[in-house]
């Protein structure tokens, strides 16, 4: 009964999800500085070489795919963090992970760190991944030293986040002229999306998302508390490490090429949770979809609101996300305070 209902629900989520994603994607391909009709878009996608094909294939399509990848990655990372720490107020940004990733990426961009010279294309994401893992470990260690409460986790995450932001600023100042490109990148934008990046981020994030989805049921068991999960035969420590590495990787992939895009990882899982509850088998797929929709819409807004000028998409998500976060905070305080 219940399992059957949830299976049906998952199918309908996937079905509706694909439809909504396609609609938003078509809007995203069509609208912009120059409008391109739907008929032309379809023609271009199936291979017709008409006027506008370059705009669609080289600019808007990579941009759209980046928005989907980043939205999916950040919201999956947020959903996993919220469950792993049993704290609904964390996401990759509040946990310090994204700031660590940004610092890693900036160091690699500005100083051209040769640590990974044999893999130069992957230097930025690798360095971002190391930054993310370092920041997350620091947040967890400080939080444990501070008593391990949900509040100490948030406070320690914020402190680590500020620390890495400061380090990023320093790196930018020291970098001088070389930092110019990194400055705009930091605001968060899909402008610079390219097929070269996507060839790396799509497979990497797909594999990581797949790994997380495979563990959806075990994540459910963790929600019961560590002791109960362990006595149910779940290797909590191993699962936790696997998930921490995965969410650092997802955050690093999102931040490396598209900069700081806040609040998606916090808000998307909450919207999904309001609809389907805590079961990760439904929550994760819907969070991933919701995150993609939010970023597709935000990217569209960033192009249209002050056209022909373009707003940083990170600013849009923060403008929309900050009030939602405050709302959650106040509601939670009312319930548990």
């Amino acid at each position: 009964m219940m399992t059957q209902a949830r299976r049906l629900r998952l199918l309908s989520i996937i079905f509706l999800g694909i439809i909504l994603t396609v609609i938003l994607s078509l809007a995203s391909l069509s609208l912009g500085a120059s409008r391109i009709g739907l008929g032309e878009i379809v023609g271009i996608l199936v291979g017709e070489r008409v006027e506008g094909a370059r705009i669609i294939l080289d600019i808007r399509l990579p941009r759209l795919l980046s928005a989907i990848v980043v939205g999916a990655s950040l919201s999956a990372a947020g959903a996993v963090m919220q469950g792993l720490f049993r704290n609904p107020l964390v996401d990759p940004y509040i946990g310090g992970v994204a700031s660590g990733a940004a610092f890693g990426a900036v160091v690699s961009m500005v100083f051209g760190l040769s640590l990974f010279s044999p893999f130069s294309t992957y230097g930025i994401p690798l360095s971002a991944f190391l930054g993310a893992l370092t920041a997350l470990s620091m947040t967890l260690i400080f939080s444990r030293m501070g008593g391990g409460s949900p509040l100490s986790l948030i406070l320690s995450g914020i402190a680590v986040s500020f620390l890495f932001s400061a380090a990023t600023s320093l790196a930018l100042v020291i970098g001088g002229e070389k930092s110019f490109g990194a400055f705009f990148w930091l605001f968060g934008s899909f402008v610079a999306s390219s097929w070269r990046h996507l060839a790396f981020t799509i497979p990497a994030s797909t594999v990581t998302l797949g790994y997380i989805l495979l563990h959806a049921r075990r994540l459910n068991v963790i929600l019961l508390g560590d002791e109960e999960a362990r006595q149910l035969g779940v290797n909590v420590a191993l699962l936790r490490y696997g998930m921490l590495v995965s969410l650092s990787l997802l955050t690093a992939l999102a931040v490396s090429f598209n900069g700081i895009i806040g609040f998606v990882g916090l808000v998307a899982p909450h919207i999904a949770r309001l609809t389907v509850g805590e079961d990760y088998r439904l929550l994760l797929p819907l969070s991933i979809l919701t995150g993609s929709w939010l970023l597709l819409a935000s990217d569209l807004a960033s192009r249209l609101l002050m056209a022909p000028a373009e707003l940083p998409v990170g600013a849009i998500t923060s403008l929309a996300g900050a009030p939602i976060f405050l709302h959650l905070l106040v509601r939670r305080a009312g319930r548990y305070g």
């Binding site: 219940m2 469950g83 049993r86 459910n220 068991v221 929600l223 019961l224 508390g225 560590d226 002791e227 109960e228 149910l232 949770r273 509850g277 805590e278 079961d279």
Partner: peptide, 14 residues
Amino acid sequence: EGQPSLTVYDVVSA
């Protein structure tokens, strides 16, 4: 010590 937002079914099926 689990999540208060889990449903009864979620807890028992675990």
